Computed example of a mutant assay.
Amino acid sequence: MLVLSRKVGESVLIGDDIVVTIVEARGDAVRIGIEAPRSMRVHRSEVATAVSEANAAAAAVSDDDVKDLLGRLRRPE
């Protein structure tokens, strides 16, 4: 892991098209701004982990569970 010190207003370049700028530093929190191409997904790590876990849980649903849920649905007349 590369560890850098930056002051408010200073930036870090990642590759040719990603810029991370320190926007604000207050107490033990730092606000950063990220400029990246729209094709590049940028997520907080806890959000990416939650989505990954939710996808794994959804994939773990059995065929019997799906059949049970579908059996409970009423079709419109």
Rank of each mutant, 00 (worst) to 15 (best):
residue 25 A to E: 08
residue 47 V to R: 09
residue 17 D to Y: 01
residue 50 A to N: 07
residue 23 V to P: 02
residue 36 A to T: 14
residue 11 S to R: 13
residue 27 G to D: 13
residue 14 I to G: 09
residue 45 S to C: 08
residue 29 A to I: 08
residue 21 T to P: 03
residue 25 A to P: 04
residue 14 I to N: 06
residue 20 V to G: 05
residue 38 R to S: 14
residue 37 P to H: 04
residue 7 K to Q: 13
residue 11 S to H: 03
residue 63 D to C: 06
residue 4 L to Q: 08
residue 42 V to S: 04
residue 42 V to C: 08
residue 22 I to Y: 00
residue 14 I to K: 11
residue 44 R to M: 10
residue 70 L to H: 03
residue 66 V to A: 14
residue 49 T to N: 11
residue 21 T to R: 13
residue 32 I to L: 15
residue 19 V to S: 05
residue 5 S to R: 15
residue 11 S to G: 08
residue 45 S to E: 07
residue 39 S to K: 14
residue 20 V to E: 00
residue 20 V to K: 11
residue 15 G to W: 00
residue 59 A to N: 05
residue 54 A to P: 03
residue 25 A to R: 13
residue 43 H to Q: 11
residue 35 E to M: 12
residue 51 V to Q: 14
residue 76 P to C: 12
residue 34 I to Y: 00
residue 49 T to A: 10
residue 6 R to A: 15
residue 23 V to A: 15
residue 33 G to C: 12
residue 72 R to S: 06
residue 10 E to P: 02
residue 73 L to T: 09
residue 45 S to I: 09
residue 68 D to R: 15
residue 14 I to P: 03
residue 40 M to G: 04
residue 44 R to N: 06
residue 71 G to T: 06
residue 17 D to P: 07
residue 1 M to H: 05
residue 54 A to C: 06
residue 69 L to T: 05
residue 60 A to S: 09
residue 72 R to C: 04
residue 36 A to R: 14
residue 31 R to C: 11
residue 60 A to V: 05
residue 4 L to S: 11
residue 21 T to M: 10
residue 63 D to T: 15
residue 44 R to V: 06
residue 33 G to S: 15
residue 59 A to L: 08
residue 57 A to P: 03
residue 66 V to Y: 02
residue 3 V to N: 11
residue 33 G to W: 00
residue 9 G to P: 02
residue 40 M to D: 05
residue 58 A to P: 02
residue 66 V to Q: 11
residue 76 P to D: 04
residue 63 D to W: 01
residue 21 T to S: 10
residue 72 R to L: 12
residue 63 D to M: 09
residue 76 P to L: 13
residue 18 I to V: 13
residue 12 V to N: 03
residue 31 R to Q: 12
residue 20 V to Y: 01
residue 21 T to K: 12
residue 31 R to H: 08
residue 30 V to D: 04
residue 68 D to T: 07
residue 31 R to P: 07
residue 5 S to Y: 04
residue 73 L to K: 06
residue 50 A to Y: 04
residue 54 A to W: 01
residue 18 I to R: 07
residue 18 I to D: 02
residue 48 A to R: 06
residue 62 S to Y: 00
residue 21 T to E: 02
residue 75 R to S: 09
